[in-house]
Structures are given as C-alpha cells and as structure tokens.
Design a protein around this nucleic acid. Structure first.
Lengths: 247, 247
DNA sequence: GTCAACACGATTGTTGATAATCTAGGAGAC
DNA sequence: GTCTCCTAGATTATCAACAATCGTGTTGAC
C-alpha cells in the first residue's frame, strides 16, 4: 500500500513543534497571506490574479489558490468574472462611504450591547485603553493613538458579545484598510476623536445603551464626513495615496 | 498539437448574446441549488454534508462541490472543520436574535437612505406595495401579506441605492429563513406590523430620514421581541417547526 | 469487566492532467 | 488602409486518481 522510498516532497513532512516557517503552506495560511498581501498593497487594485502565479508565490497547489480566491470573493476583496479570472477589487470612495455607514450602525449596535452586557472587568479594560489613548495623544504619538483606537473598538466589540455583528464588522474593516489612515492625518481630528470616544466609554460605563449607541454613531459619522472631505480633496490634488502606510 | 486537416473547433460558434442554459449543471447553479435545498429544509441542521453524496445529487464533480461548500461557509449557512467535513449550520435562537438585530440596524440605514435618495417613481412603487399589503390583510390572506412584506422591504432597499447594506442584508436574511414565518403566525402581529410599515413608508415619502430610520428600527425591534417570545414558547412546547413553509 | 492500542473503513485534502473558454495577433479580402 | 475572419497562445473550469487524516469497531491485556 505504501512505498515509503518515493516522492521527495514527502521528505519535508510536518515539523510539528518547530516554530520555523512552514515549508508548505496550508490553505488557511495561504488565505491569510494573500489577504494581507492585498492589504499591504502588494497587489494593486484591478490587477489580475492569475492562479498559477499565485500558486507559485504562495507555494500551494492551484486548487488551493482557487479555494482561497472564492473566500476572498465572498469577503468582497476580490471580484471574479466567469472564465475571465479574478482581480483585486477597487474600492471607490463612494463605496468606502457606504462601508463606513454600514460599520457605523453595526458598531453602534455593539456599543449598545456593550452597555447592556459588559462586565465590570471589561469596563475597566475599556477605560484603561481610553486612558492610554489620552496619553498617546498628549505625546503627539499619532501612530500609538491609532493603535489604541483599534484596541478600543475591539474591546467594545468583545464586551458586546455579539458574534454576528463582530464578524460583519471585521469583514467591513478588511475592505477599507486602504482608507483607514487618512482621517487621522486631518489636523483637528485626533482631539475631536478622543472626545467622541470618551463619550462612548462613559455611556457604556453608565449602562446607558441609548447614549452609547448615539455616541458611537456620532463618532463614526464624523469619521465618514472627514473621509468624504479628504477623498474629494484628494481627487482634486494628487493621485492615490498609498504612502500613508502604518510603518 | 492540432491536426490542420480538419478541426472540429470550427463547429463551435459563439452564442455571445444568447443566455443559453448549459445542459449540465454549472458551479453557480449547483451553488444556488444547494442553497435552496438548505432553505427548503431538505438538509437538516447538523446534518453532515458528504462531498460525494452532494456530487451525485447535484450531478457535478467533487471539486465543484468543494467550491460550493466554501461559498456556503462564507455565507454562514455551513460550518466546516478541517479534515472532518462540513455540516449544515444550526442557527440557535440566540443567534437568530443577533441576526435580526444586525438586520434591524442595516435596514434602518436603508430606510434612511431611501428617505434621502428615493425618486418619486420609487416612492410611488413603495406606496403601491403597501396598499397591496393592506388589501391582503383585509382579506385575511396572511401568505399574500407576507409576500408583500418581503416586496416592501426589497423596494425600500432598492430605493436606498446602498449596495453594501443590500448585500449584507441579503446574507443575513439567508441565514434565518427557517424563522421568518414564525412571527406572522402570532395573532396580533399582522395588524401591528402593517401600522409599523405604514409609518416607515410615510417617513420616506416625507423625506424624513430620522423618522424613517426610527420607524424601521421600531418595526424590526418588534419582530425581534416577537421572535424571542415565540422561541422561548416553542422551547417549552413542541420541537422545531418545519411545517410553516411557504408552499 | 474495563481500558488501551491497533487496524480498518470512510472521508477529506491534494495533485496532475484534460477540456472549455477567452484574448490577442495576423492573414486575407475589399 | 481598414475591416473581418481565423488561428494560436494563455488562462480558467472541470475531472479522475492519489495521499493523508479521522472515526469506529475490534482485539488483547490487566
């Protein structure tokens, strides 16, 4: 049944405990990898995704690439036309606004649920994250502030215990990573943003779901209008701004 | 490679514009078919989905089945554990409530957008659907009322011109078809429902986005509490109610 | 009698090859 | 010179076979 002295590919079997990079990538790893490659901008929008190239790049079979592409299509990061292959989806500014609007109502829902269901421990965590954001802002550490921003939203979502909303928000965020660093660069934004976040946290701590929801919607509504402004400004000015990466 | 004498490839003539249906089932058709099979309840929750069986049933290859399953997993209708296969996802009552909550805020967003962007023609259409629902209710035609209900929500979503929200709502609705006919069976529900719908339509016609959003949230909030009540009641009473199909 | 190790059957994951389809480039007619 | 038809290359979609993995039933020891 088994001829062990064949197929040199099997020589690189599982190295279970060793933390070295895996010689052959799994399907799920390939998915993560390609997803992050799109986020990093290594694959430009409207660029064709040729299956054999991706297979060589990710060191997996073409069937795996195909599976990964299906998942990315369902995520909205890739579009696929029959018999003509897949390409990276270009998220227009109008679409970014739509995504942000959808995110706003869903995150407002999580803020409401957090106000209803958060434990005392979770509220403490949320407060701590907010304090850290305040410090970062006083130090003019915009990058640190941005990270704290993401942490705060994540902490609120965790406290909400709303799997459905959490999953959808994650999917939406994945679609507009390219835009997420624009708003923070607007000079007056961070200070305003901190006030909005503080209102959300206070409402959650006070167990006031209506106020928490309203505060979160106000916050993301401001992000939306800021994005719309910078987008229309960027349209008049220079081209696409890929230089606003995080590192 | 090819013999230049006579190539049967010339028999292939392009039928560019004609949308002919292929005699063998394509991947996309198989996806639709399996999806509807789950909705019809032919595949029970927690039932294992064995690839070869599905391949035989849908008359496609196993590779196609695999692609279809990936899409269904991403849709949230199927869960897949590595090396252990896929099975139909069981949507618990708590999850149904979550889904309805998410749908509520998203549909409220579409109601708001519809109030902002709907054309006069679209408002006329929406009004007509509402009138038809009123008639159906006077005739005690609950099934017709339910269909009108779906039509009304669809018309509002179309008028909103919000692709992102529309896509997400469609995904959410697909996950709880099994629950959607429960609420209409509660005696006092339809009359109350009609009033809620009327409020939504009036707000849209009046170009009042805040009122439209609030009315839609009120409506779906009531659906949610009704569902929660019938769910807890059903838990005490009989088992799962699959007999409430649309026929 | 109970528990653990083992082997078998069933099912999934992967690979390579084959057929169907689309895009691009060139030959020929007008 | 330009347009149309056709051929060739490239790419996707599908299929059938192979390898790896998991669950289950059985055997054996204590």
């Amino acid at each position: 049944m088994s001829d062990p002295a064949r197929t040199p590919a099997t020589a690189v079997r599982r190295a279970a405990g060793t933390p070295r990079r895996p010689p052959v990538r799994s399907a799920d790893e390939a998915y993560q990898e390609l997803r992050e490659a799109i986020h990093r901008g290594e694959l430009m929008p409207n660029e064709r995704l040729i299956e054999v190239e991706l297979a060589a790049r990710l060191q997996v079979s073409r069937a795996v690439v195909r599976t990964v592409l299906v998942r990315l299509v369902q995520d909205g990061l890739v579009v696929s036309t029959p018999n003509r292959g897949a390409h990276v989806r270009l998220v227009t500014e109008e679409e970014a606004v739509e995504i942000l609007q959808a995110r706003a109502v869903l995150e407002a829902l999580t803020a409401r649920q957090a106000a209803l269901h958060a434990t005392a421990r979770e509220i403490t965590t949320i407060r701590r994250v907010l304090d850290r954001m305040t410090q970062k802002l006083e130090q003019d550490d915009l990058l640190g502030y941005s990270e704290g921003n993401a942490d705060l939203h994540a902490a609120i979502i965790a406290a909400a215990r709303h799997e459905t909303a959490a999953r959808m928000i994650a999917g939406l965020r994945a679609q507009l990573v390219r835009f997420q660093y624009r708003t923070i660069l607007v000079p007056s934004r961070p200070a305003q943003s901190l006030g909005e976040h503080t209102a959300v946290v206070e409402a959650i701590a006070n167990r006031d779901p209506d106020a928490a929801e309203a505060a979160m919607r106000r916050h993301l509504g401001h992000v939306e209008s800021t994005l719309a402004n910078t987008a229309s400004a960027a349209r008049r000015g220079a081209g696409p701004s890929d230089g606003t990466r995080t590192a």
